[in-house]
Design a protein around this nucleic acid. Structure first.
Length: 257
DNA sequence: ATGACTGAGCATCTCAGA
């Protein structure tokens, strides 16, 4: 079972990239973030040609998440439980697939909108923790994956890449991420690569890619039974070197069985 | 060496991203 996450920074700009990547990597399930379009603009037919069914939670211009799967699945939630049902930001998708609950997220960045914007990020993280706790209490197999917009530790950003006041590294942000982990979730990439860089994002600016100045902000968190099945978890750096790439690369998690 | 990104949208600039 191969499950991946990828912030594509516009699916309309990256349709070809995603198609080529699906053919090369052959994941069973791919969660997408920042599709930056409404559902009717999502190139679902293009991915159907490759055997993937799409579920899209879109909006105009910003945000937007989706799932592509070549195995049967059901979308159960399109808004993070705890937020108003009419919340304007499309950042959450929850699926039932292969005996698992899979949550795909595009967690708010938190650097725009001043203190209000940052508080929205923290509230979002608190609702996510509550949802995860609820599912774990039911003993469900759970994976939460996506763009968390969190560098969990200082090992997860290149030195000087962000000021300590940045919403991706602020102490409250990291505390909220740890609260998620303390529910009993396993950070898949760090479980297998405990030290050293494992960047998933390189800024378009300041030659971040050629200098390999990145961040680790795209994650996959596994419930205990799924962590027992963990085989590999790796950012696919190769994608950042393609023409007109996203600023994020896919993270691929392989589970036994 | 005095450099400088990308995408969307009621667009030739602004907002957001991280």
């Amino acid at each position: 079972m191969k499950i991946a996450t990828w912030n594509v920074n516009s699916i309309r700009q990256r349709e070809g990239h995603v198609r080529r990547w699906l053919e090369r990597v052959q994941p069973d399930l791919l969660l997408l973030q920042e599709i930056k379009c409404e559902a009717h603009q999502f190139p679902a037919a293009s991915f159907a040609e490759l055997g993937y069914t799409a579920e899209v939670v879109g909006q105009k211009a910003y945000n937007g998440v989706a799932a592509l799967a070549r195995i049967p699945f059901t979308a159960t939630h399109r808004v993070l439980p705890g937020l108003p049902a009419d919340d304007a930001q499309s950042r959450y998708i929850e699926l039932t697939v292969a005996g698992m609950t899979v949550i795909g997220i595009y967690l708010p960045n938190g650097n725009s909108g001043g203190e209000t914007g940052y508080q929205y990020k923290l509230a979002w993280m608190d609702h996510l923790r509550a949802r995860a706790a609820q599912l774990l209490d039911r003993d469900e197999n759970l994976i939460i994956t996506g763009d968390f917009n969190v560098c969990p530790t200082d090992a997860d950003l290149s030195p000087g890449a962000l000021p300590p006041t940045d919403a991706l590294v602020r102490p409250e942000t990291r505390a909220a991420f740890r609260a998620l982990l303390w529910l009993g979730l396993t950070d898949a990439v760090r479980a297998l690569h405990p030290t050293g860089p494992a960047w998933t994002f390189w800024d378009y600016q300041a030659a971040a890619w050629p200098r390999d100045q990145g961040l680790r902000i795209d994650h996959a968190l596994l419930s205990p039974a799924l962590a027992e099945r963990l085989v590999s978890a790796t950012p696919d750096r190769r994608e950042r070197g393609e023409e007109q790439p996203s600023d994020h690369v896919p993270v691929v998690v392989e589970l036994a069985g």
